[in-house]
Design a protein around this nucleic acid. Structure first.
Lengths: 226, 226
DNA sequence: AGTAGCGCATGATAAATGTCATATTTAAAA
DNA sequence: TTTTAAATATGACATTTATCATGCGCTACT
């Protein structure tokens, strides 16, 4: 079995506060899953009864809206926990979690998390802080959505994707989202997103290599995003 | 001194989990403030070093954006805690808190909250749950901003104001926001907001009595908001 | 009473964004 | 390889929303 005490990713999460004994408990209760690109970890409305720790890959949290569009609320990468909110609130998942790139995740049952939360102050404080961090980010996103134009949000999102997930050796963005997904992140129509990418391309802010994207002028993008 | 054990509002917050001894500790450390309509409880960037428990009145959490508009992120009423997020994250306030109607708030120093958090599992779980609730709401707002039209968001917001804050004896909404504030809540220009209110008025969905608003056809508003 | 200032209202217009139609390219499947 | 479907791209147009200009009606102050 994969021992959690050797897991580097654990150190990036709230779980870093666990002591030796707790880590053993964790290792005995967790289940590891491989999720292929496009597959779901859990769907909106499901009761998860635990959290998923992302070991590798990239995932998206999204919600299908009335008009049929899939709104991406957040992207996640290794070192993040998924499903904490629903678990704590005792509610079915508000969002779906799907893999944008092949993922490895560990499922940790609710009972374990609650036990750690009640018996390890550092852990509960860490967990609290991550949720608070998510809240802050969400509020700031809200403000951006309310006050920035689609163009500004696209520029901002491209910079965010580059800063958060990095680039390949050919300088293209490592996260490869479809135009539809990108549109879903910034809250616009797919065609509008494609059109603006073309504009950015013509202005040499970015370069489009097939479906891949290279940031060519980050400074100008930053200025555009304000 | 106002004893916290008699405070009805305390029962509505995470603080309901405190035992007798803790409530005495709370009563000895808290400070009560009166905030007049328009005044700030704290401003964006301030370090608050504690939380504010809203006893009475209505407040808004907002952020001034680059273009000079004040984006309202959330309204708060009695029974809510303010500034938990910043306190937990050890960061200056991300948002300003101002009174929309005269308020009474109690300030509770950080040290007390942290002490309760570390020594009372029920309290820490309650606090965690409120932050999770805020997060869920914020994510749902984000989706609405990204996918609904201004008209839909206005209808939704009017219904929310009615459901959350109720109405006066003359049926007008109890929260009295300026058109500018209302526009700031739904993320649009003041003029667009005014124009849509006029439209709703003409369609008899609402009635405008001076600056006050009466919901006349909730069913149709709900349908409009989808 | 006058007048200054602010919030509300509305028109005219421009700009941003969405929608529908239709190519074109890319990737997957047979 | 050929075939097919899906993703990307672009044009034309409709709709939504923002912006600028102006006027009205309060209310506060002198």
């Amino acid at each position: 079995m994969n021992k959690c005490d050797q897991c580097i990713v654990r150190q990036l999460t709230s779980l870093k506060a666990l002591n030796k004994e707790e880590v053993i408990k964790l290792a005995n209760s967790k289940t590891t899953y491989s999720i292929k690109k496009g597959e779901a970890i859990f769907e909106e409305g499901e009761i998860t009864n635990g959290v998923f720790c992302v070991k590798d890959g990239i995932g998206k949290l999204s919600k299908l809206s009335a008009n049929g569009k899939d709104q991406i609320v957040k992207l996640v990468k290794s070192g993040e926990l998924l499903g904490q909110r629903s678990m704590i609130s005792n509610e079915p998942a508000n969002l779906s979690a799907k893999a944008v790139a092949d993922m490895e995740v560990c499922f940790i049952p609710k009972a374990e998390i609650i036990h750690f939360f009640n018996n390890n102050n550092q852990f509960s404080m860490n967990l609290m802080q991550t949720v608070c961090e998510d809240l802050k980010e969400s509020e700031n996103d809200k403000i951006a959505l309310a006050q920035k134009t689609v163009k500004q949000r696209l520029a901002e999102t491209l910079l965010y994707l580059h800063a958060t997930f990095g680039e390949n050796t050919d300088k293209t963005l490592k996260v490869q989202l479809t135009r539809e997904e990108l549109a879903g992140m910034i809250g616009t129509a797919t065609e509008s997103c494609i059109r603006l990418l073309s504009d950015f391309n013509k202005l040499e802010l970015i370069e489009l290599i097939g479906k891949k994207i290279v940031l060519k002028n980050e400074k100008a993008l930053k200025k555009l995003a304000e």
